[in-house]
Amino acid sequence: MAARLRLSKELKEISRDKDASLVLAPRDDNLFTWTCALTGPSDTPYAGGRFHLLLRVPDTYPLAAPTVTFRTRIFHPNVHFKTGEVCLDILKTQWSPAWTLQSVCRAVAALMAHAEPDSPLNCDAGNLLRAGDVRGYNSIARMYTVECATE
């Protein structure tokens, strides 16, 4: 009940200020499943790509964090290559009920720009960055962006 109220409040807030680089909407009028289309941040290998996220909101939201998964394939140290699972501290231990779905999506966009190779879900990407092979990482990430995230 509290979750529904809060989500409809967030929906109202989102429809007030539209942002083309972050399109967030509930899927099939179900307030507990949201989709987000995220534009890859500039100056990253993901620039220009359109990444789709799926946000599943638990009944206890906002006391529990939503689960965020990438529906678009992405080569990133903190995103599982096959399942699209995201490893982000604010979605796990550092969650706070003051976060909104919109700010969570912004945090994911920030994660794309600033990867954390020390806690990788995609070990290949993490190892490339940890070995200092930025050029190799950039070219693979760019390839998958062009391949999978360009419409």
Binding site: A2, L5, R6, K9, E10, E13, P62, P97, A98
Partner: peptide
């Protein structure tokens, strides 16, 4: 004054 959690 609005609550920072339920935003109401």
């Amino acid at each position: 004054v609005e609550c920072g959690i339920c935003l109401e």
